[in-house]
Simulated assay, not measured.
Amino acid sequence: MSHLLRAEYGPRGRSAGASTWHVVRAADPATALCGRTMDTDAETRAEEEWGTGLRCCQQCGSLYMHEVPHMEGSHPYS
């Protein structure tokens, strides 16, 4: 499954930059994993930028971790 990061802007709008980054599925870019409806013309970034210091939605991050295998092969039963 492919994901993207999508910007949520604060009260000052796009000019102030993203206040929070949400994770969306590429197949449904208008809905964040947390359920928030996203502006489809908001800035997007590659999912590889998740966890690199961007201010990301905690709920989206938790759900993203359940959908994407990280450090494949590091699980003792794999």
Rank of each mutant, 00 (worst) to 15 (best):
D39P: 06
Q58R: 15
E8A: 10
H22Y: 05
G10F: 07
T40Y: 00
M38S: 09
R14G: 01
A42S: 15
E72L: 11
E67Y: 12
A46T: 13
P69H: 03
L54A: 13
R36P: 04
G35V: 06
P11N: 01
Y77G: 04
E72N: 06
A30W: 01
R45W: 02
A16F: 06
A27Q: 12
S2E: 10
G35Q: 12
G73V: 06
A27L: 12
R14Q: 09
Q58I: 15
R12H: 08
G61R: 09
S19F: 01
V68M: 14
T44V: 06
T40C: 12
H70N: 07
E47M: 10
M1A: 11
A18R: 02
Q58H: 11
Q59P: 03
L33G: 07
P11Y: 00
T44C: 05
A18V: 02
M71F: 08
E48M: 09
H75Q: 10
H66V: 05
G17S: 01
H70W: 05
H66T: 14
D28M: 09
T31H: 10
Q58N: 11
E43P: 04
H3N: 06
A7N: 06
S15I: 07
H66N: 13
G61C: 12
E67C: 14
Y9D: 01
G61E: 08
T52W: 00
G35K: 09
Q58L: 14
L63P: 09
L5D: 03
V24W: 00
G17T: 04
E48S: 13
A32M: 13
V68K: 15
G61F: 13
S78K: 02
L5A: 08
A26L: 14
G10V: 03
M1I: 06
A26Q: 14
D39H: 09
R45T: 04
A27V: 13
G73R: 05
A46I: 06
A32D: 11
R36T: 10
T40G: 12
T40D: 11
P29H: 03
R55H: 13
A46F: 00
P76Q: 02
L54C: 08
E49A: 15
S2T: 08
L33S: 11
E43A: 14
S2M: 05
A16S: 14
Q58T: 13
C57F: 05
T52L: 12
A16D: 10
T44H: 03
T37F: 03
V23S: 08
S15T: 05
H75F: 00
H70E: 10
D39S: 12
C34G: 04
C34R: 09
E72R: 14
P29I: 07
S19T: 08
L33F: 10
S15K: 14
E43N: 13
P29W: 01
L63A: 13
Y9S: 00
G51H: 04
Y9W: 02
E72D: 05
S74P: 00
A18Y: 02
H3A: 07
R12G: 03
G17K: 02
H22N: 08
A30S: 12
S78G: 02
H3K: 07
W21R: 14
Y9N: 02
H3Y: 15
R45M: 07
